[in-house]
Design a protein around this nucleic acid. Structure first.
Length: 561
RNA sequence: UGGCCUAUGGUGUAAUUGGCAACACUACUGAUUUUGGUUCAGUCAUUCUAGGUUCGAGUCCUAGUAGGCCAACCA
């Protein structure tokens, strides 16, 4: 199929090298490890495409693993949303795993480490421990509890597990090196006491393992060969390996952590914490608000899984700082929708046109092509009558040669219909045009084959028949932030850059064939953009979201004038 | 007085491991077009700097410079 030589990214190079060095292909195994504390966003999509892409490339299993070690933040709602999003993107995981499934094994290993004198219970406050931790340039100092006997540690740790102690009273720490240049190696915490119910283990446990202690061991338990994470975890690798060394069976696969730079998207934020802020402060209407860069938001906005996957493939994976322009994402959704979306006519800012030489009470059903990019899409019929609406900006009383649209005395083609000529217009007291009077050339009907129908007129307009058009709510979305990188300003909060015009709601007239449009269906409103049916639509009221406008080279010419 | 990571067009990634800097997007030209869409053709680079090795350096060496991450009982 598409076996053209695609350049490998650095992760694929690593895998290829491992394979070349004798690592068995059958032992390749990957995982996507979200924490269920928020919704997945476009940055996660890159990670999903990376891991599942590797799975596809090497016919290797990919686990979906929920990193659920913090019951304070995690909820089942997020688990469900994450599963939905990964599946919607088109990927199938091998096993659905939870770090919480390994709590017992992790505990047993921890007990073993205590016995071997490699972990100890610290009973200081977090402030005291922070003070002993040192700084990046100064070494830390040992805890006074560092040399407790294994017996004492065992008893304490068991007591912690049994719920004998309040939160914050004790922690279990790995005994490594308080002077290590890597601060993560300065006796990291393995367990803390949390008297909180967990979304899966409920109240079975009141001690919860920390990320570093959990993640690598989970990879090991699942026999993940390549554990890929973002760059900020690079310093954790040393600890990842240290923890692995404590439990590793040399006969088994030793997981390998490698880090890549997370993808930043312009004009938005890609951080669960900040997205949560947008939701909680009601800047947007929820995690799936079409302005959100969440997968569910993009889906509701009208993005397709293919467009997101193509986007992820195109931007690739590397290790440097980056800010991917949102126009690339928009390119991919246009590219996909151009092939798939049926064309329809909709007028967003209507002005009435009366065809004065067209018989009153007459309705003609004209044949319209559904998609010039897809012959199999077929044709539909659209009603034409004496009174129609066109786009207000498509008419000017007078205009220069560059204006291909309707002007007084000028001719224009109505898409799928007749050539009309503007004769006059009427205005209200404020000078606003209320109606345009036109005549049509009856022999110029589209597809009729007559000489007149073959005439070349420069402009073609979309339109809807006034009597037949349906009213619809149209939600026009724009970028959520006015700044291309709102959260990287040292002295400004990202919320300062929220675009006040990120949503405009209007009432439009759409052609009657849309009566049966269903939720999530994609359409191209000809000459305007791609839209999809929002789930807020009802029997009586259609609601459309604008996914992305069509490229508009006229806007540039017009603004230059 | 630290550790780790990174530097290639406006943007994102490549470069068969020392051999003509490539692909996509954006922008700009032009052609086609019953969507000012699509499609097609074209234009846009001192590979962070300075030295060095070499017939030849984005790639190797030396010294700089710039940026990011690390001091949560978060992940």
């Amino acid at each position: 199929m598409s076996e053209e030589k695609k350049a490998l990214n650095f992760i694929e190079h690593i895998v290829e090298e491992d394979l070349a060095n004798g690592f068995p292909k059958s032992a390749l195994r990957f995982r996507f490890p979200p924490e269920p504390n928020g919704y997945l966003h476009i940055g996660h999509a890159s990670s999903i495409c990376l891991n599942f892409g590797l799975g596809l490339r090497y016919s290797a299993p990919v686990n979906l693993r929920f990193d659920d070690t913090n019951p304070v933040k995690e909820e089942k709602e997020y688990v469900d949303a994450i599963k939905r999003d990964v599946a919607w993107l088109g990927f199938a995981w091998d096993s659905e795993c939870y770090a919480s499934d390994y709590f017992q094994q992790l505990y047993d290993w921890a007990v073993e480490m205590i016995r071997e004198g490699k972990a100890y219970v610290d009973s200081q406050t977090s402030e005291e421990m922070a003070a002993q931790k040192g700084t990046p340039t100064e070494p830390g100092t040992n805890s006074p509890y560092r040399d407790r006997s294994p017996e004492e540690n065992l008893a304490l740790f068991e007591g912690m597990k049994e719920g004998k102690y309040p939160e914050g009273s004790h922690v279990l720490r790995a005994k490594i090196d308080m002077t290590a240049p890597n601060m993560l190696m300065r006796d990291p915490i393995m367990y803390r006491i949390l008297h909180k119910a967990h979304h899966r283990t409920n109240t079975d446990w009141c001690i919860y393992p920390m990320y570093d202690w959990t993640h690598g061991e989970s990879d090991y338990i699942e026999q993940i060969s390549h554990s890929l994470c973002t760059l900020e975890f690079a310093p954790h690798r040393e600890l990842y390996d240290w923890f692995l060394d404590q439990v590793i069976d040399p006969e088994k696969i030793r997981p390998k952590q490698r880090e890549f730079a997370r993808r930043n998207l312009s004009h938005t934020v890609v951080s669960k914490r900040k997205l949560l802020q947008l939701v909680e402060q009601k800047v947007v209407k929820g995690w799936d608000d079409p302005r959100m860069p969440t997968i569910s938001g993009l889906r509701r906005r009208g993005y397709t899984p293919e467009s997101i996957r193509n986007f992820a493939d195109t931007i690739g994976i590397a290790k440097r700082e980056n800010l991917v322009d949102v126009s690339l994402l928009e390119f991919h959704v246009r590219e996909d929708l151009n092939k798939k979306a049926p064309r329809v006519m909709a007028v967003l800012d209507p002005v009435k046109v009366v065809i004065t030489n067209y018989p009153k009470e007459n309705t003609e059903w004209l044949k319209a092509e559904n998609n010039p990019e897809d012959e199999s899409a077929g044709f539909r019929e659209v009603p034409f009558s004496r009174e129609i609406y066109i786009e207000r900006e498509d008419f000017r009383e007078e205009a220069n040669r560059k204006f291909f649209r309707l002007k007084l005395g000028g001719e224009v083609r109505l898409k799928n219909s007749y050539i009309i000529k503007a004769e006059s217009c009427t205005k209200d007291e404020e000078g606003r045009i209320t109606e345009i009077q036109c005549t049509h050339d009856p022999k110029s009907k589209s597809g009729s084959g007559t000489e007149e129908s073959l005439r070349k007129v420069k402009g073609t307009l979309h339109w809807v028949s006034a009597d037949h058009a349906l009213e619809a709510e149209v939600r026009l979305y724009d970028r959520l932030f006015t700044d291309e990188s709102p959260d990287t300003h040292k002295d400004r909060d990202f919320l300062d850059f929220v675009n006040p015009e990120s949503l405009k709601v209007i009432t439009a007239y759409v052609e009657p064939s849309l009566k049966t449009a269903r939720e999530e269906e994609h359409y191209q409103f000809q000459r305007i953009g791609y839209f999809n049916v929002d789930r807020d639509s009802t029997e009586n009221k259609l609601v459309f979201n604008r996914t992305v406008p069509l490229k508009d080279s006229w806007a540039k010419i017009d603004s230059q004038e």
